[in-house]
Nucleic acid binder design. Structure first.
Length: 259
DNA sequence: ATGCCATCCAATGGATGA
């Protein structure tokens, strides 16, 4: 099963790039973030024509997440548990069935958190705590699951071209990185880094200041695996070429294959 | 390094992103 995550920075604005990539990469499941539209405006019929069914947790203008799948999906969950007052659409999960195999796929868009310190950073840290609680309860089931999305976390200095530029940024503050490590320490495997301990690759390049031509990128899109999913991990790829599309998202797809 | 670019909504500017 090929599972991808991609922050598309508006599904409508970048539908051409998304379509091109789906046709080339042919993933089975895709977690989309920042779709920036409400459920009714999501291009369900368009993706249906490409062979994908859609599950959407949308929001006007900001945020919004969705799952695309060639395989059947069931048991949909919208919104991260732990705060009934949270109205931001940042989490959607479903169980993907591939014959006798099942994988719980959770797509997430973790808050940016800037400026830090401040209420936005507090929200980010609280959101990570909720994600840890969610992961902890899922791990008790001893089943295969994937937490895939835009984490807005640069895990380590080698995950940024210019780490010195990020020292006071919410994506790289010590407390951010510690919270991310605590999430991993529950028993999750970060797919890309687990397979390639010293590979330098990025998943985001700012639109500004020639970040892309200078390769001034950061790696903030991750797929975390439960032990039962990690046992099945075959490969991980970051599809950097997509950043060179005409009218691209500022993020590129990250894709794994599970046996 | 301070949003230099891009998106959205709505109105020719503001909020947001990382």
């Amino acid at each position: 099963m090929r599972i991808a995550t991609w922050n598309v920075n508006s599904v409508k604005a970048h539908l051409e790039s998304v379509t091109t990539w789906l046709q080339q990469a042919k993933p089975d499941v895709v977690c989309l973030q920042e779709i920036k539209c409400e459920d009714h405006a999501f291009p369900v019929a368009h993706f249906e024509e490409l062979g994908y069914s859609s599950l959407v947790h949308g929001q006007k203008t900001y945020n919004g997440v969705a799952l695309l799948s060639k395989l059947p999906m069931e048991d949909v969950q919208r919104g991260l548990p732990g705060d009934a007052t949270d109205e931001q659409a940042r989490f959607i999960a479903a169980t993907v069935i591939d014959g006798t195999n099942a994988v719980r796929v959770c797509g997430l868009y973790l808050p940016n958190g800037n400026p830090a310190p401040g209420p936005k950073y507090d929200y980010k840290l609280a959101w990570i705590e909720r994600l840890k609680a969610f992961a902890k309860s899922e791990l008790l089931k001893e089943e295969a699951f994937v937490l895939a999305g835009d984490y807005n976390v640069i895990p380590n200095p080698e995950d940024a071209r210019n780490p010195q530029n990020w020292t006071t940024d919410a994506l790289f503050l010590p407390q951010t990185r510690q919270s991310f490590r605590e999430l991993l320490a529950l028993g999750l495997t970060e797919s890309f880094r687990a397979l390639y301990p010293s590979k330098i690759e990025y998943s985001f390049w700012d639109y500004q200041a020639g970040a892309w031509p200078k390769n001034n990128g950061i790696r903030i899109d991750h797929l975390l695996l439960s032990p039962q999913a990690a046992d099945r991990l075959v490969s991980a790829e970051i599809h950097k070429d997509v950043r060179g599309h005409e009218k691209p998202s500022d993020h590129v797809p990250v894709l794994i294959e599970l046996q």
